[in-house]
Design a protein around this nucleic acid. Sequence first.
RNA 1: GCCGACAUAGCUCAGCGGUAGAGCAACUGAUUCGUAAUCAGUAGGUCCCCGGUUCAAAUCCGGGUGUCGGCACCA
Length: 647
Amino acid sequence: MPAITLPDGSVRTFDGPVTGTTVAAAIGPGLAKAALAMQVDGKVRDLAHAIEQDATVRFITRKDPEALELIRHDAAHVLAEAVQALFPGTQVTIGPAIENGFYYDFARNEPFKPEDFPAIEQKMREIVARNAGFECIVTSRHEAMELFEKKGEKYKVELIRDLPRGETITLYRQGDWVDLCRGPHMRGTGDVGTAFKLMKVAGAYWRGDHRNAMLSRIYGTAWRDQKELDAYLHQLEEAEKRDHRKIGKEMNLFHLQEEAVGSVFWHPKGWKLYRTVEDYMRRRLDQADYLEVKTPQLVDRKLWIESGHWENYRPHMFIATVEDESEKDRVLAVKPMNCPCHVQIFNQGVRSYRELPMRLAEFGACHRYEPSGALHGIMRVRAFTQDDAHIFCTEDQIATETVRFVELLSGIYRDLGFSDFRVKFSDRPEKRSGSDAVWDQAEGALKEACRIANVEYVLNPGEGAFYGPKLEFVLRDAIGRDWQCGTLQVDFVLPERLGAEYVAEDGSRKRPVMLHRAILGSFERFLGILIEQHAGRFPLWLAPVQVVVATIVSDADEYAREAVAALQAAGIRAELDLRNEKINRKVVDHIDQRVPVLAVVGRREAEERALVLRRLPGREQETVKLAEAVARLAAEATPPDLRVASD
RNA sequence: GCCGACAUAGCUCAGCGGUAGAGCAACUGAUUCGUAAUCAGUAGGUCCCCGGUUCAAAUCCGGGUGUCGGCACCA
């Protein structure tokens, strides 16, 4: 006699086990028609699922957030059926719903091509139109193995074999097509609707392991209706427009070329942007009691052997040698990190506990041989500069330093236009240095510090550095990809390996703890994200060109020169546009170049010693006396850390 | 690194066996104009590289390199 509690609090009782379909029908024909699935005591279930005991039930209709995931998961099944119908001999593997869509991985000798999409989509539409019901079949391990064995589906057989003993094995049937699946599903393939689209093909390793076979993955997107699909596709187009690679070219900020793969050629305007951020960071670090240092690019492998990098990362390091016979045994590595060098500075002389925490900072240029497939614009490169620092401190100081760091990082992110970021906590990886006891200590200290600093994180198991656990501060790019920028890593291992010590209060020698930390991460990556975040339209203080003074007639040239000089004298990055073009044209060009402020001068302004200011790409304009314009723009162009509080 | 796609003028792209094209940018000239592209003219190319097929290759085939999308990697 199950009693079903509905979201409005009402309770309905039934004589025996009931399916969601029956309950929905009992509530009303509207709901019976709209219900796609249900949530029983918080778990999403098929409508055909029998409820045997008292439960709280909520029906899921197309409007509910859960519907999207169901649509996408069902779409993956429809895709798989379509592919097997069109390409006999293709084996199915897995096909989950993901953010914005779904994918399905197939095993086939010949990978799929985008040209195959129209036919597959057509077949999918047929399957949706046929609207076969999803039927859940509970089966035994043995039967399931036999079924897929007979079909020649060796991946499915492997999946079943690896399912934990005692797990219920369910199959879902849609017409004649059957897949191993945990569910839940909607009523039938018709519920998928037609607002789906196949997006791209990609290779993907079976079970995500590069030692396994490469499968052919088809990605698709699916939505509740055409309008949502169109909106999503439009959003993708918009995102493409803010791609840093595109904007970098359009604004002439940087370029990349074959002769220096993975290294950025910064152009004057791009370098101005870089320098503006670097200067800002340097001031923030000074204020936060960091000591800036500079360490060598080329360091003997001896040091990397001691630090453990040689053992763990040698294939990723660039090696430099010279031809001179007397140097033939010397192998230098281009530094992939700064930490061992910073320890060398710490190790000079005898350190006292009074010097701790000692925060050594460096804008350190590092090189890493990244796999070719990993390279991405300026966000993933082989030559990059970290805003790196190592805090040498006592164990007791970890918490306070973490709090200080998180505060510094949040303030800087806010100034640069990021109020939103996510934090991941990565704990011990398989390949690591240091004993378990040391790792327990390091992870414990970092967790405790997070608690005190009030940092909410998601756990990222097994992803720590080889020398310690880390916090990762993650920002999202225009295309929706996440990038690690800031990081804080607790390290008990390197100080030990490199023999760092200080004299404690009681005169004994102790090991400091090392906190590796970066805020931007690498300038290259961060600037890439910064470009995308602002779509190239930077706040005035960051813009590489802040103001362009543009003339209407050549009679105003001389005054325009004077105006630019006055702006530049006030520290404003101003340029002059005296081209023999109409003002309309100049407006368009500077909008294209994402110049924040256009100052127009004609005869009138020259006479009145004024500027007509226009905020691009806006249309509003305002006439301001030259002296006042300079003062106002200079104030606005002041980096946030140098502004005097006006209120 | 793996799977797939792509590489033509400074940029965006067309051409896909038969003398390399367009728009924009550049340059020259005219025009001096009041806020979202003034007009006319000129110049500009080892069609990514190396091989092969062919009477003939930007185009077809093979091999490199790079870029892009994923996967794997990311100290």
